[in-house]
Design a protein around this nucleic acid. Structure first.
Lengths: 256, 256
DNA sequence: CGCCAGGTTGACACTTTTCAAGCCGCGTGG
DNA sequence: CCACGCGGCTTGAAAAGTGTCAACCTGGCG
């Protein structure tokens, strides 16, 4: 079965971790098929060009590699071009929690702005590609481009809203509601990016899902089994096929 | 016993919900004893004056009154001058969760920037006073004042970090760890504002605490009782006296 | 004074975790 | 090419933690 998560517009490799020349630069944002999701929404072509110029590195990241480490000095934001990432926070006693999964077009590292130190680890969970956006450059550009500034505020605000949704999930939902919420969210985000929303492969392990949902991996596994037994899902290892979206929505909404 | 939460610098009443004159305006930020916590950190006096001019309303809010309602059009941020607020999000099935408590100097309403709609209710849990900051004005000012822009980004980023901390709490901690984290956080925030960190009165009910911590009110109550039995706290209704901070820290850090 | 929201406590039910055993699938190396 | 090993997944049974329901207490306010 073909890997439905490989983006149809993914571009050929550039040099690993190295600046590319001006010509390639200009292409970076203007040709990025994810530009609606990424920063430049609502910009003129000229503005996109300006933005492109401050994004001078594009980098390939291997599965398991960290692009951001908690505690390191904050210098840049990263936009996901292709692939999949998890963000992890470490509790004082060493317990770790996944605080989010990110896919193409999403922006990483915003938690570092506050105190100039990244507050979480961000690790690729599959081979990926990111654009590094040096924050000083972006900051300067924001002052000159009101529309970009506005958009950046929206992106940050939406991150606050997203986390609020997760808090809600962790605070009030039961295991099956959490998993339903997770699957529906994933499905929707894939759909927006042009993938089949009802059949996809999970990039993360049961343990990572559990960590994100505030559950143990066994509970995640059991809940998958339960959904399958009820005819809501078909689960084959990491492949998920959603058979009955309506039931999933009902579980999420806590009816049923 | 005197109410330790009444701010020593609280100012006399202004007209309720009405614009005040220019003279009073200038005073708003420059004389605000909370200016280090609020937006203007790191600004020159001239810049503080500029900021003051866009904050043309100061408003008294009664206990139980909402300053922000989920679903309403986003127009402004609010800075808490005095008092205490809770932010609540509503789940699809009607279950409500408290997503945060805010006190003097903290900024509210940032979740509305993303889609120009407030995403949560913000309700005073005691008689309070807020400054309304029309966002269009602020937005325009940010473009002209790089230091203010930078500070605003830090404030938003810290909100993301704060929520990350709550997610951690909800995801991995047990009831007693959650309550310890809550009390230590409250204690620290009071301390920063010049209040006694080890003796304070809770402004919120057990139910609100529970909602915030992802616990039922009975569990909160039991955990308070347990802490008291262990000699860690003295609990009298809403009055809390922390007797053994170290134990509380150990519980929080999960070493007991 | 009496009401009532808010708080405490107990007994029991339920969900999730913990611990344990075993399975599956995939990549590696013989 | 196959066997082996290992990480990841599933499942079961028992334990722990928290929720639910219910009774009762308490203090503040009309």
């Amino acid at each position: 079965m073909s890997n439905i998560l490989i983006h149809p517009n993914s571009t050929p490799a550039t040099t690993h971790s190295l600046p590319v020349n001006i010509h390639e630069l200009k292409a970076a944002c203007a040709n990025c098929s994810l530009r609606e999701l990424c920063l430049p929404a609502g910009l003129t072509m000229a503005e996109v060009d300006q933005l492109s110029e401050i994004i001078y590195t594009r980098r390939r990241v291997k599965r398991g590699e960290a692009i951001i480490r908690s505690g390191e000095a904050f210098t840049a934001l990263y936009a996901v071009r292709t692939g999949f990432f998890k963000a992890c926070a470490l509790a004082s006693d060493g317990r770790e929690q996944v605080t989010g999964f990110s896919m193409a077009g999403e922006l990483l590292g915003m938690d570092g702005i506050g105190d100039d130190i990244y507050q979480s680890d961000v690790i690729a969970i599959e081979d990926s590609e990111v654009c590094k956006i040096p924050f000083d450059n972006l900051d300067a550009l924001l002052g000159e481009m009101p529309s970009l500034q506005r958009h950046f505020h929206k992106v940050m605000s939406r991150e606050i809203v997203r986390e609020g949704g997760v808090m809600m999930m962790l605070g009030v939902m039961k295991a099956d509601e959490r998993l339903a919420a997770f699957l529906l969210n994933l499905s929707q985000r894939l759909h927006i990016r042009g993938y089949a929303p009802l059949e996809f492969s999970l990039r993360m392990t049961r343990e990572e899902i559990g960590s994100y949902l505030g559950l143990k991996l066994e509970t995640v596994s059991r809940t998958f089994s339960k959904f399958q037994a009820e005819g809501i899902l078909e689960v084959n290892q990491k492949m998920i096929r959603i058979i009955d979206v309506e039931s999933l929505r009902k579980i999420y909404a806590h009816h049923t």
